[in-house]
Design a protein around this nucleic acid. Structure first.
Lengths: 213, 213
DNA sequence: ACCCCCTGTGTGACTTTATCACTGATACGC
DNA sequence: GCGTATCAGTGATAAAGTCACACAGGGGGT
């Protein structure tokens, strides 16, 4: 919890004025979250604004049918914009968040958030930028889900992991990435295997021919 | 263009400190937009932050296939959060906006926006709240599109217009509201007509039995 | 080693939605 | 009244989602 802690030089903390950063680091609570930890669930009240120092947090949503879809991820030196709305409107979350890679997170109390918003142009700028990214992520997602074919989207997803030849993921988890059903993913993958483009194992996809993006 | 102009008492302008409101009204450009006017298209650069005084602006997105979906609407005393991201990142819009009901809009230049963000806690609060609403709208939309059945969604849409017994809309426009194809809407509506729940005319849906929500 | 059991995968049957290709119907201008 | 543009209806087919169930792999316990 020292203001002298190290942090990456290209992230949002490095962008801030020195005194703003100091104030932030001393006023926020620092917590370590192990992989798999559920940060919040749909309906939970919000405790403060999380700022991810390291690791990755996945934000996803579950429909009435029980199906889930991954909305976006919060990476290094990114904030959980969703929390701002929950904090200010004092209502519950609509989505849930799970730690994907063990993370260190700063939790800014509402008062500190408002203090920094008032005091620091750079903090304001970073907050607005974070909101912009989230809005963008979600708009892209809406377009994908509404208009693109599942086989295309699956190939895109595989292409994003292009460098790894072996991907460790279950069909169920992949279905949740794409917001579809496990059976659909199984069938599409099987077809790719028939075409010789991947080999499948239990919880494993081996990419034989890299997917272009 | 007078700071003494009338505005609704429950909207965001009424929430602001008096001097902030004055500064806003005198620093912003006021424009009248007729129904049907395209405010911006995908790829357009952003001129300033629009704040809707009256009327309604629809924000929608068009996929590669040519299909469109309505993302959300900007109503009275709401701001176009999308523009903030475009302004600050100086990149183009990803969606398009069309005036649905003739609107009066204030355009805040970037400098004025930043000035007000620095000076006014209430302006900041309203901006964050607007962002929160948009994020919420989009998350709800993702869930709808990803998981809900089209017949349900159509009935919900009709239920929202519940009080009017006659709705003037083409199947094409309704398909764009829901992000589906015109034929799908035609078939679903025809089925509702067979069930005696609506009567159909050219560009007209007459609700016989109101839809519950 | 063997079996059990949990989790993950494969697949058929069927429904819903999307797409394509048309045809037919309605309103409106000239 | 006629031509034309827009709107709506519909069959055929493909893609995706749902339901039900069989089977496979792998780790833990005895």
């Amino acid at each position: 919890m020292m203001a002298t802690s190290t942090f990456s030089m290209d992230g949002m903390l490095a962008q801030l004025e020195a005194d703003t950063r100091t104030r932030l680091l001393e006023g926020a609570q620092r917590v370590a979250l192990p992989a798999g930890r559920v940060v919040f669930r749909a309906g939970d009240a919000c405790q403060g604004l999380p700022l991810v120092l390291s690791g990755v947090i996945r934000v996803q949503m579950t429909g009435a049918s029980g199906n889930s879809i991954v909305l976006y991820r919060i990476g290094e030196q990114d904030v959980c914009t969703l929390s701002v709305g929950c904090l200010m409107a004092a209502r519950g979350y609509r989505a849930e968040a799970v730690v994907e890679e063990a993370a260190e997170v700063l939790i800014l109390p509402l008062a500190l958030f408002e203090e920094l918003m008032a005091a620091s142009p750079k903090f304001r700028r970073e907050m607005m930028a974070a909101y912009g990214r989230r809005l963008d992520d979600l708009m892209l997602l809406v377009e994908e889900v509404a208009f693109r074919r599942m086989d295309d989207r699956l190939e895109d997803w595989l292409a994003l992991r292009g460098s790894d030849t072996v991907i460790d993921i279950t069909h169920q988890a992949l279905a949740e990435e794409l917001g579809t059903a496990r059976e659909v993913v199984s069938r599409l993958l099987k077809e790719l295997e028939r075409q010789g483009r991947v080999s499948l194992g239990r919880g494993r996809i081996e990419v034989r021919v890299p997917f272009a993006r």
